[in-house]
Amino acid sequence: MSKEMERRQAGASPSVFAWQSTADIVQLEVDDLDNETEESLIARGAAYTREVVRIENASTVLKKNAAVVLIAIRKRLGDWRGESYEYRERVNEMYRMAGVPNTPRGDDLKASVRYHVGNGLRRYLTPRELRHLGLKAESPLERQQDTRATAAAIVRATKTVAQAELPPARASEGKKPSGQAKRRPKGEVDVSTVAAASVSQQIKASADQLRLMEVAAGLVGHLSLSTIDLNMTDGQRAKLDEHLAAIESKVRSVRRHLKKRSSGA
């Protein structure tokens, strides 16, 4: 049971929206609002939003509760996607009552509430219901996290490839010759330095191969099936399939080589 439901069972009126401070505001759940009228829902949403407008750095719970109110209105209207004229009119009325300004700050506030609506819908509806409605199963928060993770994976891959192309540091690099060091005749090669450099190159090359495959697997792992299904065009999906086929062919070739090495062939 949510805190809001406990508050009502204790005798508080659902139509009174007055708080001593924002700390008194509890997080709503959609089912908490099943018994409220549309007028009460709009008034409640306006009250939460008015506080967001009034307070420069308003608590996130205010925006989340305004979003829950909008989800409850969608539920009441049977318009989960929020596309009907009736729904949009009620949203506009809520923002008018709240005194949301037609300014960049007002636009940011509305965008923030929509963000929480998207997250709230994914918590309230099942994946099957979301698919039936033509909505992505991932919430805006999850998509944001996926985007950041994908970007980070691409950066890691780029750095790894760049590092793999660099020659290993020479064993003598960075060392200043000692005043006691014996000067070698011109053209004479330090065999120990060459051997050390050769070993260093082998170690680096081996480690680079493993890192390259690690980032390659990470990049493929970041492919989103829902994005492929819902956002890509047929041409983009065909191009993606070409890239995957090329990767698959290269992977098969390398694995065949590894098996031959393991069998001693």
Rank of each mutant, 00 (worst) to 15 (best):
R7M: 12
V16W: 12
W19I: 06
L28V: 07
E29H: 11
E38I: 11
I42P: 00
A46E: 01
I55G: 02
I55M: 10
T60V: 15
V69A: 11
R74I: 02
K75E: 13
W80I: 07
V91A: 14
N92L: 13
G99P: 00
P101Q: 11
N102G: 07
T103K: 02
T103I: 05
K110G: 01
K110F: 13
V113C: 01
Y115Q: 02
N119D: 15
G120L: 06
Y124T: 01
T126F: 14
P127M: 12
L130W: 03
A137Y: 05
T147F: 15
T150E: 13
V155I: 13
A157G: 01
K159V: 09
T160F: 11
V161N: 05
V161W: 13
A169H: 04
R170Q: 07
P177V: 14
Q180A: 14
A181H: 03
A197D: 11
S200Q: 03
Q202Y: 12
I203D: 10
I203G: 01
Q209P: 00
L210M: 07
L212G: 01
E214S: 09
G221F: 10
H222R: 07
L223P: 00
D229M: 13
N231T: 08
D234S: 11
D234N: 09
G235N: 10
E242C: 08
H243P: 00
E248V: 05
K250N: 11
R255S: 10
R255L: 15
H257V: 06
H257M: 12
S263M: 10
S263T: 04
